[in-house]
Design a protein around this nucleic acid. Structure first.
Length: 109
DNA sequence: CAGTTGACGGCCC
DNA sequence: GGGGCCGCCAACT
């Protein structure tokens, strides 16, 4: 299992109507410091359909500007479709941050 | 093999 | 509270 696959699996675990920060995903994938690596992994995004990269935002709740699969606004639109409210272009992480089930989870195989 | 880059995060001003 | 700088780890050239 490579680092990327772990990240992809974690991202795939993000439930509907919730968002996770890169650091959050990185932590679940194995190391919190993979925040940047997570971004790189999603950048290559091998499966745009299976991997809801739009549910991944920065810790501030802002979508990445370099979002190139449809535009940053597109990401916001998708998230709003899931019941997530945007305040001045950013999500309320206090409420919409992914509620981690236990802690490390996933990435089992 | 070594240097640079990059969908970030945290600390400091 | 907002903006800027440094640090991290893996992938890329």
């Amino acid at each position: 299992m490579n680092t990327y696959e772990k990240i992809y699996l974690v991202v795939r675990q993000i439930p509907y109507g919730k968002v996770a920060s890169y650091g959050q995903v990185a932590a679940l994938a194995g190391n919190k410091r993979w925040s940047r690596v997570v971004g790189y992994a999603l950048h290559v995004n091998p499966d745009e359909k299976g991997i809801p990269c739009y549910r991944v935002v920065t810790k501030d709740g802002y979508p990445s500007k370099a979002f190139a699969f449809g535009g940053e606004n597109k990401q916001i639109e998708l998230l709003m479709s899931e019941g997530i409210e945007f305040l001045d272009g950013h999500v309320d992480m206090r409420k919409y941050c992914w509620d981690i089930p236990s802690e490390a989870v996933l990435v089992s195989d």
